[in-house]
């Protein structure tokens, strides 16, 4: 079964942003960013788009399905 994976942590770190800084940019709590990075919480489409906008990438660069590479 496909599972949602994400590269949020790597993309955030590559831009020198802390979880708190990214959270502040998109208007959510640091805990929300942390739970998304740890794949505990799946964000809404709106938040996914905001994260992509804040990191200047596409949503698909952040989120992908586990069997997409197969």
């Amino acid at each position: 079964m496909s599972e949602l994976e994400n590269a949020l942590k790597a993309l955030r770190a590559a831009r020198g942003l802390t979880q708190a800084a990214l959270a502040d940019r998109v208007g959510v709590s640091r805990k929300t960013v942390n739970t998304i990075e740890n794949q505990v919480f799946v964000p809404s489409t709106v938040l996914a788009l905001k994260l992509a906008q804040a990191l200047d990438v596409s949503v698909h660069d952040i989120f992908h399905l586990s069997d997409e590479d197969e």
């Binding site: 208007g27 959510v28 709590s29 929300t32 919480f41 964000p43 938040l47």
Partner: peptide, 14 residues
């Protein structure tokens, strides 16, 4: 307003 919105973000509602 801003801090209250952050404290009631979508993780909170979830």
């Amino acid at each position: 307003d801003r801090n209250a919105e952050i404290a009631t973000d979508e993780l909170y509602f979830s």
